[in-house]
């Protein structure tokens, strides 16, 4: 009897202490254990309200934990913090590239409105104008304002701000996003002439219809690729050469891309599949699909982490690095 009371008291004290340290899960676990012990020994406990009190504490903790876990990954921060992000998370020695990097850092930290302001300035710099414009589109995608992105494109088109080739590149990029997101907007074109070649795979001027028809022959030699070489990929088909899905090709949508690093979201339901996609695993048969072309290549799993909260809870965030194209 005394032992049980002591144990309950000890659990309750520990719970209070953990809570004071902000260790909410640990505190909740102690309350749960105390509650279980009280329930099991109800006939021995004089205080009939104890279980009720413990349940209330568990409930309050649960609510707090949920609030923290479902809290935003990012919120719009004060200017002081945005300035630090812009200046301290830009590492290029080149002024223009550095400014672009700073603006991209803002977007990566979820500061989309501030990032948009930066990119708006940066499209005036010739050497990075297209990249800045693409990032304006990406920000609008993140802000769920693709109609605004389409309006911006139309402005660029009417202003003759970009060259026809650049405009075409932006149109293909944005149209791919609009289509993949099910947004029914058809962007007007600027006509240009290009010749289909392996160049179509890279970030060069290309017309959509030409590129779609240009399926790259398999005999083309494998090419090592640089970060800046890779075009925007919309989805990836991985053919598994081992494990439970051996021989099968599974297609995944790209959730984010930074150069040759492509981020995919994989459902955690298929445990074996997820386990097979370990960091360092080489994927020898990968099909890359972009709005303008598809090509085959190789990639390596560079990181994998479980998403522990939010709408994609239970999914795995997988980064694959494109190592070569065929």
């Amino acid at each position: 009897m005394e032992d049980v009371k002591k144990k309950i008291k000890s659990f309750l004290q520990e719970a209070e202490l953990y809570q004071s340290q902000g260790l909410l899960n640990e505190a909740k676990e102690r309350y749960v254990r105390a509650g279980q012990l009280v329930k099991k020994n109800e006939n021995l406990i004089k205080n009939k309200n104890l279980l009720k009190v413990i349940s209330k504490k568990i409930h309050v903790l649960k609510e707090k934990i949920d609030r923290i876990e479902s809290g935003p990954i990012s919120v719009e921060m004060p200017k002081q913090i945005q300035d630090i992000i812009k200046h301290k998370f830009s590492f290029s020695k080149n002024d223009d590239a550095g400014a672009l990097e700073g603006a991209i850092a803002l977007a990566k930290f979820g500061q989309f409105e501030a990032a948009l302001n930066e990119f708006d300035e940066l499209i005036k710099t010739a050497s990075i104008s297209v990249e800045a414009a693409k990032n304006i589109i990406r920000c609008h995608k993140a802000l769920d304002s693709l109609d605004e992105a389409a309006n911006r494109y139309k402005e660029w088109l009417s202003e003759n701000f970009f060259t026809p080739a650049q405009l075409n590149k932006l149109r293909v990029f944005l149209q791919g996003i609009l289509d993949s997101q099910g947004v029914d907007i058809k962007l007007p074109k600027k006509d240009i002439i290009t010749s289909p070649s392996l160049e179509t795979l890279m970030d060069t001027e290309v017309s959509e219809t030409e590129a779609v028809e240009t399926v790259i022959p398999e005999k083309i030699v494998e090419q090592e690729i640089n970060d800046e070489d890779i075009i925007d990929i919309s989805s990836v088909g991985i053919t598994f050469t081992e494990g439970p899905k051996k021989g099968e090709t599974i297609e995944y949508d790209v959730s984010f891309q930074a150069g040759s690093i492509i981020n995919l979201l994989i459902s955690g339901d298929d445990k074996e599949l997820v386990e097979n996609l370990r960091t360092g695993v080489v994927l020898n048969e990968v099909q890359f699909y972009s709005p303008i072309a598809m090509f085959n290549g190789k990639a390596v799993v560079s990181s994998k982490s479980e998403i522990e909260s939010g709408p994609k809870q239970g999914y795995y965030s997988l980064d694959i690095k494109v190592t070569s194209i065929l």
């Binding site: 902000g22 909410l24 935003p72 919120v75 002081q80 913090i81």
Partner: peptide, 12 residues
């Protein structure tokens, strides 16, 4: 400079 969120947890 600190960027905190719910329960004084560091956000960035």
């Amino acid at each position: 400079v600190s960027a905190n969120t719910e329960g004084d947890r560091t956000l960035f």
